[in-house]
Design a protein around this nucleic acid. Structure first.
Length: 598
RNA sequence: GGCCCCGUAGCUCAGUUGGUUAGAGCGCCGCCCUGUCACGGCGGAGGCCGCCGGUUCAAGUCCGGUCGGGGUCGCCA
């Protein structure tokens, strides 16, 4: 080793020791006759005193040094309480420049971090400099701990870590695939997996019984703060289990993860049905850090004279203290609602004397006005927002309004952790956006994915009422974020075929797309199920990061662009030719992709 | 694909009703400085105001388009 100690761990107890340190010049304070260097390595910072002006003068920020010297107590009154090493300093008797540094695109030293935030674009373009800073670095280090903690739980529970292919076959449904040309089969393409879903099920057929993988997944979709084209899941699958077994294991994992940041999750984590979540919070991922539940008023307004409320669903959410908002603020709420595709957001204010105000109030009947405050649970000074129309759309709007109210009124305890399992989701949803599609129209698609089993109660009867059939699936939600989800899978070929039928996937199509899986299932597939955790999102939550970009070593920016490498980039004509990108598939007939190996 | 916000020095930003030579802090370069820790002092360099077009006597500023970034809705089984 080029060093004997790490800089950041030196303490008063080390006084008198001669050490050799290596690291970067964080800052330099040159007084002519004496110079102070803040030497930084991964453990922290220590002050180095250089008395030789010739040595100290040419040093610059981020030069890489090897310093040998004696640990010494700082002179009386010169301690720095902001540094762990603030009691001591290293009196250098040898300073070797291991490498120089060009002037920096941004300041790496975080001494002034509180005042200046560097833009994300430039940080990502020089991510290797960004990661020298303790804040960004700590997120990446936490991620390593998170991986280790999960592996420990799973290893102790007898799981086998198995890698699955990243060059695989494009499967229908779901997100857009990233595709890779196959040089040896021009015109044919691999797809990068959206998740290891099919492989992990095959591993259950293979008798591995307990599988996990920290798996990279790829989806060619548009961006969000919490979405990257490549992202990571902790992927888990188990044989001979039911829902409670998977949930119990998942809770063990979550407990060990949150323990890393000193939070104790109390198990069992509460469960809520999907129907309840939608009814009370207007979303399948409710943020339970605050109350403010939606109030269903369809019956209350059953005979209303107000046309807008003559709708299949009427609901409301209360904004505490919202009654005193100025008119333009309410106009802003209308705009907010319109941006989410709603016609508007009706509201009623409740004055301190209980009098109702706002443009909607006068449209209500006497009786409706009289009972409204009690019906919605409002207080004087509040306002009540209403949504009326289709149930799903109205609830979604109210659910979004609830979150917005929570944020604006600071009802959310940002230090809280609130976990909930959302269970009993529907198995199917109507295809297309219109949820009024008549049952029996035949157009159903899987809510989760095509291999999710119906719950035991529905397994024999789901065809009779696909819209009501429940899936044997579960999502784990933390502070309004879905951080994982899974299901018990279908392991019987006949059930699988019936599910395909409801979804309108014919036998031929099923054979072509999932033939290898269906065949595997014909050889004694064990009952199995599993879960996948959104690893980036979990680490982002644990590190209190705003974006998953903060917990990915080299994230992409908008448009899938990597500001560091410049990927994606054009390829040469030679590469195009070799890769077979431009190969024209032969017309139909035998040109079909070869059947999976039998 | 729709909508919103942002593009001015290496970084973070200011820039008046359109009006002389576009500023500040930090950083950078040079000199000075023996107890600093966001050290300090003196001096200096550094700008296609994202790009293209328009309006105007005159555009960083107004208008249209475009590119890039961020957010959001659609989308993401």
């Amino acid at each position: 080793m080029l060093r004997t100690h790490q800089a950041g761990i030196l303490r008063a107890g080390d006084i008198g020791t001669t050490v050799t340190l290596t690291g970067w010049v964080d800052r330099r304070r040159d007084h002519g006759g004496v110079a102070f260097l803040d030497l930084r390595d991964s453990s922290g910072i220590v002050q180095v005193v250089v008395r030789d002006e010739e040595v100290a003068h040419p040093l610059r920020s981020e030069f890489v040094l090897q310093v040998t010297g004696e640990i010494s107590a700082r002179p009386e009154g010169n301690a720095n309480p902001n540094l762990g090493t603030g009691e001591i300093e290293v009196i250098a008797n040898e300073v070797l420049v291991l490498n120089e540094s060009a002037p920096l695109p941004f300041q790496v030293s975080t001494a002034i971090d509180a005042q200046v935030t560097v833009g994300e674009e430039v940080r990502l373009a020089h991510r290797y400099l960004d990661l020298r800073r303790p804040g960004p670095a700590s997120a990446i280090r936490l991620r390593s701990q998170v991986n280790r903690a999960a592996r420990t739980v799973l290893d102790e529970a007898g799981f086998v870590e198995i890698e699955t292919p990243t060059l695989t076959r494009s499967t229908p449904e779901g997100a857009r695939d990233f595709v890779v040309p196959a040089r040896l089969a021009p015109g044919s393409w691999y797809a990068l997996p959206q998740s290891p879903q099919l492989f992990k099920q095959l591993l259950m057929v293979a008798g591995m019984e307990r599988y996990y993988q920290i798996a990279r997944c790829y989806r060619d979709e548009d961006f969000r703060a919490d979405r990257q084209p490549e992202f990571t899941q902790l992927d888990v699958e188990m044989s001979f289990v039911d829902q409670d077994d998977v949930i119990a294991l998942a809770e063990q994992i979550l407990i060990s993860l949150w323990k890393l940041i000193g939070y104790e999750i109390t198990a069992p984590i509460p469960r809520m049905t999907y129907a309840d979540a939608m009814r009370r919070y207007g979303t399948d991922k409710p943020d339970l850090r605050f109350g403010l539940e939606l109030v269903e008023l369809t019956d209350y307004f059953a005979d209303t004279p107000f046309r807008v409320f003559q709708a299949p669903y009427v609901g409301a959410v209360v904004m505490p203290g919202g009654g005193s908002q100025p008119r333009r603020q309410f106009d802003a709420w209308q705009e907010w609602a319109k941006q989410r595709g709603a016609k508007g957001l009706a509201y009623v204010t409740v004055a301190e004397d209980g009098e109702l105000g706002g443009p909607v109030a006068k449209n209500l009947s006497e009786a409706e006005r009289a009972g409204l405050v009690e019906a919605v649970g409002a207080q004087p000074g509040d306002c009540v927002f209403f949504a009326a129309g289709k149930q799903s759309e109205s609830r979604a709007l109210l659910g979004a309004a609830r979150l917005e109210i929570g944020r604006r009124q600071e009802l959310i305890d940002e230090s809280a952790w609130s976990f909930v399992w959302v269970v009993d989701a529907p198995l199917f949803k109507p295809t297309g956006e219109d949820d009024d599609v008549a049952v029996g129209g035949g157009a159903w698609t899987a809510v989760h994915h095509a291999f999710t089993s119906p719950t035991p109660e529905w397994i024999d009867t789901f065809e009779s009422d696909p819209g009501s059939a429940l899936a044997y699936a579960y999502d784990i939600v933390c502070n309004g974020n879905e951080i994982g989800g899974g299901s018990i899978r279908i392991h019987r070929k006949d059930v699988q075929q019936r599910v395909f039928e409801v979804m309108g996937i014919g036998q031929e199509e099923a054979e072509e797309k999932f033939g290898f899986l269906l065949e595997a299932f014909s050889y004694g597939a064990p009952p199995h199920g599993g879960i996948a955790f959104g690893w980036d999102r979990i680490v982002a939550l644990l590190s209190r990061a705003d974006s998953i970009r903060d917990v990915i070593a080299f994230p992409k920016s908008g448009g899938g662009y990597d500001p560091l490498t410049g990927a994606p980039a054009p390829i040469s004509p030679q590469q195009r030719k070799e890769a077979g990108v431009d190969a024209k598939p032969e017309p139909k007939g035998e040109a079909q992709a070869p059947a999976p190996a039998q």
